[in-house]
């Protein structure tokens, strides 16, 4: 009996110690931020000097929901700031008789709610007090280990936002097949937060990262 108590005491001690350092993961909405870019490696970005970017953003939302235009101006100003830093000149979009831009940038915001059946692993710290008091548990020392790879399931929902922009050359549009050939695309994707200042900060950092990871925009 003494030996059994020692066995299980050690077992409890080690499991508790182990549960205390279970690995983490994303904690904040900003931890889910992704920045994606892609480009046409045949396009000569070094020749780009001017661009046109609309003053409005196209919004895609779930059916029945109203789009939020809260960050549109901020998104456009951040894109413009980064294009300026490249030396690109934004042309006046209201002047129909003005010069043709070298490239055109269009921006889309997608806001969707996803429903997700989430399977989570057993976290050893959960429910330990219950097992501690359950005398039957001591007869089944393997029971506590049955959970780690079975876990449980619940359904949750989360709102995901994507800011997407495409750059194309107006001289490289296939009008016969009605295809706009994209030369550069960028996208920011992540969970939507509630704080405006945090969201602006995430947008600002994401757009800058998109430009940073696209050195070819400078013709390099």
């Amino acid at each position: 009996m003494k030996s059994q108590i020692r066995n299980y005491s050690l077992f409890v001690l080690l499991v508790v110690l182990f549960s205390g350092c279970y690995p983490g993961g994303a904690e904040y909405t900003s931890d889910t931020d992704l920045v994606y870019t892609n480009y046409n490696d045949q396009f000569n970005f070094g020749s780009v000097q001017t661009y046109f970017m609309s003053d409005s953003i196209y919004h895609v939302v779930d059916e029945g929901k109203e789009p939020s235009y809260k960050f549109d101006n901020f998104i456009l100003s951040e894109l413009e700031r980064n294009f300026d830093a490249l030396g690109y000149t934004r042309l006046d979009s209201t002047n129909a008789n003005g010069p043709e831009p070298d490239v055109v940038v269009v921006v889309t915001v997608v806001e969707t709610t996803n429903y997700y059946a989430y399977s989570y692993p057993w976290y050893p710290g959960w429910g330990w007090g219950y097992y501690w008091k359950d005398s039957n548990y001591w007869g089944y020392p393997g029971y506590g280990w049955g959970y780690p790879w079975y876990g449980g399931t619940y359904v949750t929902s989360y709102s995901v936002g994507t800011i997407l922009w495409d750059m194309f050359d107006p001289d490289n549009v296939d009008e016969d097949n009605e295809v706009v050939n994209v030369e550069w695309t960028g996208a920011l994707n992540g969970l939507l937060g509630t704080s405006a200042s945090t969201t602006e900060n995430r947008i600002s950092r994401g757009i800058k990262q998109a430009f940073d990871q696209s050195p070819y925009l400078q013709g390099k």
């Binding site: 182990f18 690995p23 983490g24 931020d33 920045v35 994606y36 870019t37 280990w145 990871q213 696209s214």
Partner: peptide
């Protein structure tokens, strides 16, 4: 023998490239 071993690593803000695409984010 029965063992439970957990390896974990966070790659914060790492950029991964594949052909012409680049993806930056935190991997867990």
């Amino acid at each position: 023998l029965f063992t439970w071993t957990t390896f974990y690593e966070e790659l914060a803000g790492a950029t991964f490239t594949y052909e012409s695409a680049a993806l930056t984010g935190t991997q867990y």
